[in-house]
Simulated scan of single mutants.
Amino acid sequence: MSPFLLTRTLPEDATDAALRADVLHGLTCTPKSLPPKWFYDARGSALFDEITTLPEYYPTRAEREILLARAPEIAAATGARTLIELGSGSSDKTRHLIDALTSLETYVPVDVSESALRGAANTLLADRPALGVHALIADFTGGLALPGTQGPRLVAFLGGTVGNLLPQERAAFLSSVRAMLSPGDALLLGTDLVKDEAVLVAAYDDAAGVTAAFNKNVLHVINRELGADFQADAFAHVAVWDRDNEWIEMRLRSRVAQTVKVQALDLAVDFERGEELRTEISAKFREEGVRRELAVAGLELTHWWTDARGRFALSLATAA
């Protein structure tokens, strides 16, 4: 195959249609909410990259530690000739895995951002010119048609992003991953672990205010794309730990009673003073819970690795 192929499985207007649908639903339901994928325009992605370097934000460093230490074991356990990465972004951490997969022939990064896919491919091919890269512009949460590739295949879903899905969404997602696996294929899953509440809250409410700017960026996205008139300073960033559900919630709390207009939707939205708009959940996990959720989806957990401080885990699962 050629070193780089790019396939679009999303219609050109799919992003705009999805944003409209999510904003209309989220701002008219009770309580109000928005999915976290709308943080990530160019500015939001840059802010998140900055977040990963902050002293309070441990997940990126912890996961990289595991990958550096365990990539040879992952390679030996899977023998993967194809690596499929869901929500690949810059593919930065994945390079440790790619370097260890000595039998790897094809890398299939999956992301909604064409620019991120092209940038990652250019960087990878500069170091691995013989590697086949078949990038997919796709939303992995909406079902995925993968290109024909050689097995064994390793599907990687890193960064703890699975925690951004509600439990029923996670169940559907894991079942969809199971459906794309053939005998001999495996799933590598990154999960942030339950830990001290103060550590968790600080990771989502840093002293420098970068996460607050990241959270409010969703308002700038809606203003720009849908002609809304959100005033970001009229909302406060809030991060709270939900003990019952064992997840962090990021919210935007209205500082005043206000009405926001969304021109493209012909929508006026009232906020009471103190009313909150949920913008993200980030579930934290325990090994037994991950094992159970994988089993329900028809996957068997075969390996479990954590960083030295037990903050984050990578798990390997195969079709049961």
Rank of each mutant, 00 (worst) to 15 (best):
T191R: 01
G227E: 11
G142F: 10
D229E: 08
D127R: 13
E272L: 15
L265S: 07
G143Q: 10
A198S: 14
N164E: 06
T15D: 12
M1R: 08
A236W: 01
R273P: 06
G190T: 01
F214S: 01
S113N: 03
T279N: 02
P109D: 09
A212P: 03
V210A: 07
F173L: 13
G184K: 11
A257H: 10
T78L: 13
H134M: 05
S91W: 03
L200W: 05
A313C: 10
N245V: 07
D16R: 11
V269C: 11
V210S: 02
L86I: 00
W304N: 05
G132M: 07
Q150E: 13
L193K: 00
L158T: 00
R95Q: 13
Y58T: 11
L193Y: 05
L144M: 09
A18L: 12
P129C: 15
A308E: 10
T52D: 04
D229V: 07
P11G: 08
E272Q: 15
A297V: 09
N122M: 13
A77Y: 05
G209K: 08
R20C: 12
F230L: 05
A264I: 08
A171E: 06
L5R: 13
L144E: 04
A77K: 03
S282M: 00
E63R: 00
G132H: 09
V194Y: 03
